[in-house]
Write a protein that binds this DNA or RNA. Structure first.
Lengths: 193, 193
DNA sequence: TTGACATGAGAATGGTCGTTCTCCTATAGT
DNA sequence: ACTATAGGAGAACGACCATTCTCATGTCAA
């Protein structure tokens, strides 16, 4: 009953999103054509357009998918370090520092996408803003769990430091700004005891 | 002896850089064509290409020019607030906050440009990194002048907070992250007395 | 087998943009 | 006044890209 195909739509979608993630992050949205996605994923243009009717919608799907994937990676990375006895709010910086040291690091995909003007519309911007709100909510929950005074205030301060660290590490190609950010976070946490 | 022209090359260059600044910042580099620069500046394509042999070189000239202009604006804005009795390192955040509240704010032009992949090459990246190094050196000098312990460390922490504030303010369209950054800076400064 | 249809490969279309070229005007030096 | 030349307006060229279309293939249901 289902249409004949080498791979079904779900598999094709997964392959497309995986390629989109690799290639959009590495080369920017405007730097990647639909043909590049096809070449990387092996999904034909025809199928690509049947799954995602336009590049805009593919980008929106990628951003949404990346939000989920990235948050899962980030929270589990923080969790793992916390289990090992590290202060969770500081573990956040170590997770980012490890990422920033890995090859291909180009900063926060959401910040980079927001900086692109040609291919990004308001739908995308909403996804991006929601990602940052979500990250902030997580940091605030960590601050709350830590029992610090004014957890919302502390969480926001940590959030600014994290974003600043990610951006500067990308621009300067060094994870030293993340170390400085962690250093600052430690002072702020100490002051919130 | 000089060739006949409505305006001379220096004036044309100034007009082009002014237009480039307005339009590259507002719409991104990839979002602006050479024809847009011509339309905004009134300098013909022919002359444009005689002044800047390619878009890449125009972009490099814009970034260089913007570095100078922005640093002048920033330092004088900090100076003015310092004269009025404010702590210079905190005044930096107020300057940025005022900017972020102004219409057309889109974050740091250098960070945005670095996020663009299609039109930005290594020459541009070097200018961008040099800008951030320069900003950092200024912040460190303020920390030194303030007589704080470990001024380099403090300056770096303030730098990360500033960049984080600029980025988040752009993404979330709110200057609240800058307020949080300033708040954090005050704690760090206090701890560096 | 046969017909209906989904799919892939890749050509075609339409638009954008960096860069160059053509044609024309106006000026400066003679 | 005359000519060489700089400059403007805008067309032309070539490349790239999102999107659609054509044609050929293969599969499923009867």
């Amino acid at each position: 009953m289902s249409p004949a195909a080498t791979i079904d739509n779900d598999e094709a979608r997964a392959a497309v999103l995986q390629s989109a993630n690799a290639v959009f992050y590495a080369r920017g949205i405007a730097g990647v054509g639909m043909a590049d996605i096809r070449d990387d994923s092996g999904v034909s243009l025809r199928r690509l357009y049947s799954l995602y009717p336009s590049k805009r919608e593919l980008v929106a799907a990628w951003l949404t998918d990346r939000h989920t994937t990235w948050m899962e990676w980030f929270t589990s990375s923080v969790d793992r370090r916390s289990m090992a006895g590290e202060e969770p709010l500081l573990a956040a910086f170590d997770a980012i520092a490890e990422w920033a040291e890995s090859p291909g690091y180009r900063g926060c995909a959401f910040v980079n996408s927001a900086a692109e003007t040609v291919e990004i519309d308001d739908t995308h911007r909403r996804i991006i803003a929601a990602h940052k709100e979500s990250l902030l909510a997580y940091l605030i929950s960590l601050a709350r769990d830590g029992g610090y005074a004014e957890p919302e205030r502390l969480g926001r301060m940590i959030g600014v430091l994290l974003d600043g660290g990610m951006v500067e590490a990308a621009v300067l190609r060094s994870c030293e700004p993340i170390v400085a950010a962690r250093d600052a976070a430690a002072v702020l946490i100490e002051a919130s005891q």
